[in-house]
Design a binder for these strands. Structure first.
Lengths: 324, 324
DNA sequence: GCTTGCTATGGAATCCATTTCATAAAATAT
DNA sequence: ATATTTTATGAAATGGATTCCATAGCAAGC
């Protein structure tokens, strides 16, 4: 109820002085400072932050766009973001958009509206040209390579990482290779798909469209893939699977049916998830937590001045375990 | 850059009229409305939401307090919260506090500061008496039974649910029962622990402190428990485990060492997680998604008037599969 | 002794939209 | 024909802080 004006009146100072006390400005005498603090205490006063946001033009909040939080991938990235935000004393607005473009645009409009100081786009259904105009209103960081676009990004080299995994399978002697992917048209999924097809073409390996399976998101989907593989007349010797959860489902189901892994079927996971460690799945770690924390650090820097867009590439590495 | 005043000047109307157009107020003539809309279009104007928040005293944002997002349990609750918030056109501020009380208090103070319209506390290190004073500043909903406290809650009957699970194990003939838990002093963990000890006492079952294992959070912890069990001279016949991820770790590791489940060791999970379905773990579903969505709906109702605190109890049920 | 620099303080402008109140014209009711 | 209601409009108050600018006392520098 009380405001800065009333504090000033009761403490016998100007509102400017009260504001100075609130903001730890040095030019306030000891007497006045204590008088102000006493009054604040007495009236149980706190700032109305909306007034602060209005006048300063800052809110101390950053929005995060992602399709769903209930997925290992996104919750790890979010964890990285959240820890970095906590350190920097920033607030994170979680915008779970289910890949609905209108919702994603609403979030970008929050930047225009000055409700937030920046946006981190972890994954989106929006095309880069839809995002670009919003750069005028504040910093935007994506988790996919933004290349020549005017916004920053932190990214994994999906193409190279995936090829690296394929090379590994190849080096282990596998020639008939299958592939499991999440959304067929996801932007990183498309990149991996190209990597897969380019690799097969370059090495002259057999390509069977039946060996390329999409919409594999949860453990259960992996189990379903295992069943499909068992029914095939011609089965791949190795599978590369985006997401260790899916790989886990496949492995458990396949073993249940007596298929031995890696002898009869090699499995290479992706994302280095905890379940993979437990099942000793050979996988590719691509630093999802770091992706989140780096993304936050970049928006944070942009908010505090640095305006040139940056692109930060993250390293990946194969974790050799026992399913290949 | 442009503001409502400038729009008014250029469109040749008063600021009041512009505000009416922005808020779809009926008492605006067609001519003036189109003139205003045209000017808004021309100047590429959008409201400064901070001014709106200041004058209306509302922000359309709700904060969520939870220790970590990167955990199945919390990410499912968060999913429920996020979907409900999306429907209601509300923003969610994710406050990952790592159970640091100071951070949690900061969030509650956002309510005082008028930065948010309400708070959902999914899990906290704060005692109820620390939370209570903040009820004066806005609606608070917890995900643990708030009983006679002046704030609302959505909760699972952890005591009853856990006993129900124990009863099930007992009905299947198990007498030597062990127990895996997450944080030893978590508020719901403590309830489960009492349920466990009360049950054993009432049924006159043997209690071995070695069979009660804490700090089991990830798959790996479950695997570690399996190894410990294998080393015991006297081993329980059944384990009740809070969290299917942990149960999965235990089962996989135990089987790796040749222990047959459920014959040599029965395992009852908790939370009905996807991994549990894959491994056919008998578990207790306790509607975590619904917990999130209900929690949001309750804050939402409070924000829009209804001030009496409510406590909403969620149902649980055993999912019989094949590990008991 | 005079200029410069630092400390301390307050007045007033500023950020920007909403809403109450007042007024008047037009439409409807009596 | 008069009284009442509805529609339309704007001036001004309101929400609550920050900050620029002006002023003044006092200390240090030359």
């Amino acid at each position: 109820m009380a405001n800065i004006k009333e504090i000033a009146r009761i403490a016998g100072v100007s509102v400017t002085t009260v504001s100075r006390v609130l903001n730890n400005h040095p030019y306030v005498s000891k007497d006045k400072r204590t008088a102000v603090l006493k009054t604040i205490e007495q009236l149980n006063y706190t700032r109305n932050m909306n007034a602060v946001h209005l006048i300063t033009g800052r809110t101390g909040a950053v929005a995060v766009i992602l399709p769903m939080i209930n997925s290992f991938y996104f919750s790890v990235v979010m964890d990285g973001l959240a820890q970095a935000a906590l350190m920097a004393q920033y607030r994170l607005i979680l915008c779970q958009t289910n890949y609905v473009p209108e919702e994603e645009l609403k979030v970008l409009n929050m930047l225009r509206n000055k409700e937030i100081d920046g946006v981190v786009i972890v994954s989106t259904a929006l095309k880069p040209e839809m995002i670009e105009p919003y750069c005028a209103y504040g910093p935007i960081v994506t988790c996919q390579n933004s290349g020549e676009r005017p916004y920053s990004s932190v990214y994994i080299e999906h193409y190279a990482a995936f090829r690296h995994g394929l090379d590994y399978l190849h080096s282990k002697g596998h020639r008939k290779i299958g592939y499991c992917e999440g959304r067929e048209n996801g932007s990183s999924a498309s990149i991996r798909q190209s990597a897969f097809q380019d690799f097969l073409a370059e090495k002259g390996l057999p390509f069977d469209p039946e060996w390329m399976i999409f919409d594999c998101v949860r453990e259960e989907d992996g189990a379903e893939v295992a069943r499909r593989l068992l029914d095939m007349r011609s089965r791949p010797e190795a599978m590369i699977i985006s997401g260790d959860h899916v790989a886990a489902g496949l492995i458990i189901e396949a073993r249940k049916h007596g298929l031995s892994i890696p002898e009869e079927l090699a499995v290479m996971g992706f994302d280095n998830q905890p379940i993979g460690r437990l099942l000793e799945i050979t996988t590719i770690d691509n630093q999802l937590y770091q992706m989140g924390s780096a993304a936050f650090e970049i928006v944070h820097k942009h908010i505090h001045g640095s305006s040139l867009p940056v692109t930060r590439k993250l390293e990946y590495r194969i974790i050799e375990r026992s399913t290949v």
